[in-house]
């Protein structure tokens, strides 16, 4: 394909012909072998650790036994998938996954937006930078660490419950109550990520022409009016872009977080596809069954990602490469 394009273009590119005549350059395109060589180690590693496991997906259609391997295990068609939907757990798991993922997506779009718009009003640059530095930090801490911290904070006699006691509330079993726990998951996720998620909004805000605000304030528009009529409309493209790209995450409820914070008492409100796949596959050794559920999730996610990126490309001219 590229070779053809090359041929049709060559005649109008005399420089290329010139370089061809230089000694030691036989090829029209120099260094091809070097480029392939540079890519080779990475490509080999990807073949082994990304592509070979994809063939392992065949076990989704098998009653996979590790002793018999992919070639010896009996084929069962879609039985693994139909079995999952027959389980009473499946409805709960799908509901939890969608609820947690969608709530996090929405909250992680809105909270950082509000925060960025407010922070943008701060005039002292040093103060602004300090606040940014502090709120970005939790993003870089792992859920293992944060679960360790939160499990201590949220104990029935922990610091949060002691603070609530002053107001006559509680004690609340934050991590052991199915009515509360999902909101702890959403809230702590927003706490961890809101700062980091402001980066893109702040960049967009920095791109707004200050003359617009000057003109508006001369016309007598206050802060609220300026925000409503200038800031938000100009951020709209960014918001829509981020929302579109988030579509691909609609089945990602956040494995690392849930895995580190949940326990059997709250499975009812927090068991999601990824945690279920882990327990069924790695812990119970139902490899074929767990792979089938994982594959189902990946296929849906893949379709959603392609859909959302093509939307983003079409309407916002966004592309990753």
């Amino acid at each position: 394909m590229t070779g053809k394009a090359e041929q049709t273009r060559l005649p109008v590119r005399p420089q290329t012909e010139l370089s061809e005549t230089r000694p030691g350059k036989k090829s029209k395109k120099p260094f091809q072998a070097h480029y392939h060589l540079m890519l080779m180690p990475g490509i080999i590693l990807l073949l082994i650790f990304s592509i070979i496991p994809m063939f392992g997906l065949l076990m989704a259609f098998q009653d996979y036994k590790i002793s018999k391997g992919i070639f010896g295990s009996p084929w069962v068609g879609l039985e693994n998938v139909t079995y999952f939907f027959e389980l009473s757990d499946s409805k709960v798991i799908i509901r939890n996954t969608l609820f947690l993922a969608i709530s996090k997506i929405v909250a992680n779009l809105i909270v950082p937006l509000v925060f960025a718009v407010l922070l943008n009003e701060v005039r002292q640059r040093a103060f602004k930078r300090t606040v940014q530095t502090i709120v970005y930090l939790p993003h870089f801490l792992s859920w293992v660490i944060l679960a360790g911290i939160f499990s201590e904070l949220l104990l029935t006699d922990g610091i949060v419950n002691r603070m609530l006691e002053v107001f006559g509330i509680g004690p609340i079993q934050f991590l052991g109550d199915n009515r509360v726990f999902p909101y702890i998951l959403i809230g702590s996720d927003v706490w961890k990520e809101f700062g980091f998620n402001t980066i893109i909004y702040l960049a967009a805000l920095a791109g707004i022409d200050p003359h617009l605000y000057e003109a508006a304030s001369i016309d007598g528009a206050g802060w609220r009016k300026q925000t409503r009529l200038i800031t938000l409309p100009l951020l709209r493209a960014t918001i829509i872009l981020l929302a579109t790209l988030a579509i691909g995450n609609i089945l990602n409820a956040g494995f690392d977080q849930i895995f580190n914070m949940y326990s059997p008492i709250v499975y009812e409100s927090s068991d999601v596809i990824d945690t279920y796949v882990y327990r069924a596959g790695i812990l119970d050794g139902q490899y074929g069954f767990a792979t089938a559920i994982g594959l189902m999730k990946s296929v849906i996610a893949f379709v959603l990602i392609i859909f959302s990126y093509s939307l983003a490309y079409k309407y916002a001219n966004y592309r990753i490469f």
Binding site: T2, I43, F49, I52, P53, L57, V277, A290
Partner: peptide, 27 residues
């Protein structure tokens, strides 16, 4: 670099699609 686009699509494919945790575990 003639092979550039083919390599690029290969990378994108590995980024968007994966075999998941269990095949990797067995590998």
């Amino acid at each position: 670099f003639g092979g550039r686009n083919a390599y690029m699509w290969f990378l994108i494919f590995t980024m968007l699609f994966s075999g998941g945790v269990i095949p990797l575990y067995i590998l």
